[in-house]
Design a protein around this nucleic acid. Structure first.
Lengths: 362, 362
DNA sequence: CTGAAAGCGCTTACAG
DNA sequence: CTGAAAGCGCTTACAG
């Protein structure tokens, strides 16, 4: 059986349908310009000849690649020394969901890697200069990020998953990003435990820029704040300060979480529920409690496989929604045309903060 | 500052260097055809003008995309119900290492997804017909795999990571694959425990096609066989049968492994070391032992973050090597040209089985 | 609504 | 070793 490869070109389709090639092109790219009956004839020819457009030709002529780039990272270093079990879960799911949402639009996703010793800007530049991608999806950008500098300066469209912490509002609103509302998440977990009757709800988080922040300056601050603010409110405390007995901050590792849990129990024996800044920390705390043959409700963050296997409450970032929205920011509600950055009219959908969904596993 | 975008084309480079455009093209694609001094002048022009070839034009003319496709999967369903913590670790690392190895060759990696309810062949076909990729890297192909059928029939180059189990030698050698030597891995773990003085080494694996196989017909058989054969040898047993007291088979989940461990301990109380078919099973067994306040050496498979955090012995599949070799099979030792499948002269590097590396964490 | 021409930026024959 | 021409398969003006 002969391979049903695409007919050599649009020309054969045009001949088959008895129209000019431009009409075939119009059917494919601007259906509204073509009379329905002509469209019908052309579609029949396309199906009969099994025609698929040559995308390189299309890209060359139209100067649009209909492709975006996203970085893939390794998880091999996770678990070593003091890290968590699957620290790259969100990043991996983001990539997967972006690819999936892109397929619906006929947008290709090109992947690249960047080890710590490599210059990521060089890689971005190469992808841009060779016309292989129209835009980028970055994760966790910071104020002095060289990638931001390059992309903004070169007028290359992009969107960051993760807002720039500890930067001015002016800077934060100078480029498109979407993010997760960490404070809303930890507040929801706190309220859940409260509603279940717990009154001594502690927190284990990360040592970050500022302890007990009023304005969050990091993801850690944000998640801390959600717990502390909601707890103050629930306790109806006049004081603006949460006692330092109620929380412990450390690194993002199981062993650090075990240390934190141990200290917390010692300082605050009446502890009856625990909000954690991540699933890794929640697992560490849970293991410490298991060692003590005790059990209290614990919550983490990300709704990762870890939280499912170890069966603790977590917060789902709803990555499919995030990924789909990322593409909306780059390319509008549909289609595969990446909008060139337009300084006068900012995309109004950017800079959105999504609330995570509480997944209760009490 | 003006954006240093690539000079409009190869023509400007040719003018700058005072040569014809074909010479510039030759410098880029066939350096050996050009005199060193000419090359030097052209390279200077390229650098001066910051020229980067338009890859769509190159692809259109040369009919080579210098791109390959690989599927990305979600890990969101991992951890739910009865699965492991990070079941997609090897697949994710494979994708990462493939992208990394491809970058060295200036090969692009296009990703696609495929949910269980979708037709993967349709997606492959679209990528091929639109001329976006020259070849595919698949994982875990089986004998009646529709992807194999399509790719072989259409003469599209590909390589599978994972051999076809339970199929004839003829079928297995009919297409290129590379794989891991599971038996060698579990044998290594068994020998390690033996050398440490353990004589009652058990095994926890999966319920697969055939229990106590002489010829492995699945990954589970293969890993079982490595343990059972090496143990028979070490015990210098005449009988060709391992007592069914020494092993338990179940599903790929932590809870199944806990069940297996419990049964094994009951039937075989002198058990003093445990070889497991996966890191998930090893974790389950370890947790069961912890619950009993006991500890014996346990080994898993994959050297995943889980094995690192829970600090048990495991077997590293050396994914960087696998990925690099996959590209060698597709494109030779270097370069970005995917060799068309040539039935007369099979690539001699295909159908290789790599030994995993024992990572001892005693 | 449809068509004939031009051209995107390269590489591939082929000629010298 | 280098050059002038052709052409890969589309879409984009533009004309009707």
């Amino acid at each position: 059986m002969r391979d049903n490869k695409p007919a050599s070109s649009i020309i054969s389709v045009a001949k088959e349908a008895g129209v000019s090639l431009q009409t075939v092109s119009n059917v494919l790219n601007f259906p509204e310009r073509v009379k329905p009956e002509t469209t019908e004839r052309v579609m029949q020819a396309i199906n009969k000849l099994n025609y698929t457009p040559n995308l390189s030709a299309r890209r060359l002529r139209s100067k649009k690649s209909a492709s975006i780039a996203v970085r893939v990272d390794s998880n091999a270093s996770a678990g070593s020394s003091s890290e968590g079990l699957y620290t790259g879960y969100i990043q991996d799911e983001f990539v997967y969901e972006v690819v999936k949402a892109a397929e619906v639009r006929d947008v290709k996703v090109i992947t690249y890697t960047c080890d710590p010793d490599e210059d990521e800007v060089k890689k971005l530049k190469k992808l841009v200069d060779s016309r292989d991608v129209d835009g980028f999806l970055l994760t966790s950008t910071v104020e002095d990020d060289p990638r931001l500098k390059y992309l903004i300066q070169s007028n290359v469209p992009f969107l960051s998953f993760g807002r720039p912490w500890a930067s001015s509002d002016e800077f934060a609103s100078s480029y498109p990003w979407i993010d997760i509302d960490g404070a809303s998440g930890t507040a929801d977990a706190t309220k859940l435990f409260w509603d279940l009757g717990h009154r001594n709800i502690g927190f284990i988080g990360w040592k970050t820029f500022s302890v007990q922040p009023t304005n969050p300056r990091s993801v850690g601050d944000d998640r801390f704040l959600g717990w502390s603010k909601s707890l103050l409110e629930l306790l109806n405390l006049k004081s603006k300060k949460i006692s330092t007995n109620f929380f412990e901050l450390g690194g993002e590792s199981i062993s650090s979480a075990r240390d934190s849990a141990r200290k917390l129990i010692a300082k605050f024996p009446e502890l009856d529920a625990l909000v954690c800044a991540s699933d890794t920390l929640a697992l560490g705390a849970q293991l410490e409690y298991r060692g003590l043959k005790k059990s209290i409700p614990i919550s983490g963050f990300d709704n990762s496989p870890t939280s499912k296997v170890f069966n603790f409450t977590s917060l789902d970032q709803n990555i499919p929604e995030i990924a789909a929205h990322a593409l909306v920011v780059l390319m509008g509600e549909s289609g595969n045309t990446v909008a060139k950055v337009n300084s006068s009219k900012k995309s109004e959908q950017a800079n959105l903060i999504f609330k995570p969904k509480l997944i209760s596993r009490i």
